[in-house]
């Protein structure tokens, strides 16, 4: 059946491609365009491994049709580092805090974290857990992921005064423990 010629911007590069109506965005990104950052975990909108930014919003790319993104702008985790390969502060903190083990969930985690910190630059641990509800990790047990997001928030915060560390060293990461969801 129908194929469609679409144009979109991926990581600030304009691309044109031809997709089937039914092609999912995650498959177009991975198989057609070679962006393998977004992972296919559950393919059913539950795990968040496929999370990308679509027109500025974190979304699950397994639950968006590629053809829906005609004219849109997509950012994958490949777009986080700068041209020299310098990691984004969020990526740096995931590494520094051991917020990953196998790394399969990490592109999604990093993307959702960016979205969270843009709207809430100084989230509580509870807010971090709520924001990452749609990102499942089978390795870390989440503790270090939450630590990483907290450190990233501190790293991204504008330094309050000259000489004050913005690296998050002043955050006590060990004082609270996992909290249950809304129940």
């Amino acid at each position: 059946m129908a194929t469609h010629d679409i144009e979109l911007t991926v990581n600030e590069t304009e691309v044109e491609l031809t997709v089937d109506s039914r092609t999912l965005l995650v498959h177009a990104l991975r198989d057609e365009l070679g962006y393998t950052g977004p992972k296919v975990g559950c393919e059913s909108s539950k795990c968040g491994a496929c999370t990308v930014e679509l027109d500025g919003d974190a979304v699950k790319s397994c639950t968006v049709l590629a053809v829906q993104t005609d004219g849109a702008s997509v950012q994958t985790v490949e777009g986080f580092a700068d041209e020299d390969g310098e990691l984004h502060p969020i990526q740096e903190q995931f590494s520094a805090e051991h917020g990953l083990q196998c790394g399969y969930c990490t592109p999604g985690m990093v993307t959702t974290t960016k979205h969270l910190l843009e709207s809430n630059p100084d989230p509580s641990r509870e807010e971090i857990r709520k924001a990452l509800k749609g990102n499942i990790c089978r390795c870390t047990g989440y503790q270090n992921v939450v630590d990483a997001v907290e450190s990233a928030a501190a790293a991204l915060a504008p330094a309050e005064s000259e000489g004050e560390s913005a690296s998050g060293d002043d955050v006590d990461l060990r004082t609270d423990y996992p909290t249950p969801g809304e129940d």
Binding site: D57, A58, V59, K60, K130, G134
Partner: peptide
């Protein structure tokens, strides 16, 4: 506010 998760709430 308690519907699904952040990504789904964006969509």
């Amino acid at each position: 506010s308690v519907l699904a998760d952040l990504q789904i709430r964006n969509r």
